[in-house]
């Protein structure tokens, strides 16, 4: 009761997402704490600030470009399966989601339960991705190349690539197939897990058991994009430098097939963004290393915040 309430809890409280007990203690505290009351008031104004933000108008050039792209598509339809993700559609993957509880997270550990809810819901979100298949990049690249071809000069000019569609075309295709490595690159996931020191082993076991069935087998070589794990979401943004970090921390007889982009909360500390490396040794035993993104700075071993042995999946 004496400690302040953090902004996130206050925000959850404003949304009515805390359980009764926690809500009560928040209210009791805020009633006697002007500092927290101020923050709660400020939080209440965030929506208004966002709502007042003027909408940047649609530039005419973009409207024109849209019309042209659609005209080109009509004249010369791209092969089926172009930009697969966007259109996976209506109703797909909703099964099993309808019955999920809409309510707030459970008592006390609102954060934990909520995280779990988030994890479940994000796992569910990913269901449609599975249909895209492991090789989802290939049709995509083809479609992108086709699109550049079709709308060629206009698009290139708009992008400031006035030097000619050819150059732009090549650069784009290369950009989209960045991981042509002999060693399979680690699969990146964003499980939504908020790792903690005491929970690490169990949390890692949970994530690994979801991912394991789809990880490439030991010794696999592949030029393909790392597969996606259907039970776990891919990171919405791929952090740069992960592979440096993985190379620095993976021993000779080991491999690191999985990296979870997550957060870690040390005892008494604040949650910080981390990469959780799942490293497998020759015997098939897994170790997790919780690594701060600072490990791209050159001393990977110093960036390891925590490790644990994980039971084999």
């Amino acid at each position: 009761m004496t400690s302040h309430v953090d902004a996130e809890t206050l925000a959850l409280s404003l949304e009515g997402l805390l359980d009764d007990e926690e809500e009560h203690s928040v209210r009791t505290h805020v009633a006697g704490c002007s500092q927290c009351a101020d923050i709660r008031e400020a939080l209440g104004e965030v929506s208004g600030l966002l709502a007042d933000e003027p909408v940047p108008p649609l530039p005419d050039s973009v409207s024109t470009r849209l019309d042209e792209a659609i005209r080109a598509e009509r004249a010369n339809p791209a092969s089926d399966g172009g930009t697969p993700s966007a259109a996976e559609g209506d109703g797909d993957g909703r099964d099993g989601r309808q019955d999920r509880e809409d309510g707030p997270g459970g008592p006390g550990g609102a954060v934990d339960d909520d995280t779990a809810e988030e994890l479940r819901s994000r796992a569910a979100e990913v269901v449609p991705m599975r249909r895209r298949g492991v090789a989802r990049w290939m049709p995509y690249i083809a479609a992108a190349a086709a699109a550049v071809f079709v709308i060629g000069g206009g698009a290139a000019l708009l992008r400031g690539m006035g030097d000619g569609p050819g150059a732009g075309d090549t650069a784009q295709t290369q950009d989209q197939a960045p991981h042509a490595l002999k060693e399979p690159a680690p699969v990146l996931v964003e499980s939504g897990t908020a790792y903690t020191p005491e929970g690490l082993e169990a949390q890692a076991g949970g994530v690994l058991s979801l991912a394991a069935p789809e990880l490439p087998p030991q010794g696999a070589e592949s030029d393909e994009e790392a597969p996606e794990i259907s039970a776990l979401p891919s990171p919405s943004e791929n952090p740069s430098g992960v592979s440096t970090c993985v190379e620095g921390l993976t021993g000779e007889d080991e491999r690191t097939p999985l990296v979870d982009v997550a957060t870690y909360t040390a005892d008494g500390g604040a949650a910080e963004p981390v990469w959780v490396l799942y490293t497998e040794d020759a015997s098939g035993a897994y170790t997790v290393s919780v690594v701060s993104p600072e490990c791209t700075g050159g001393a990977p071993a110093d960036a390891v915040l925590d490790t644990a042995a994980v039971p084999a999946p």
């Binding site: 939080l43 600030l49 909703r94 809409d102």
Partner: peptide
């Protein structure tokens, strides 16, 4: 739109507002 439960939307909004707060404080006051 996001194909998640309404409760998830609410909690994402709440957490997002809490994260935005430090960046927006100067606009407000």
């Amino acid at each position: 739109i996001l194909e998640v439960a309404p409760g998830t939307v609410k909690s994402r909004c709440a957490r997002g507002r809490a994260r935005l707060l430090p960046y927006l404080a100067h606009l407000r006051n």
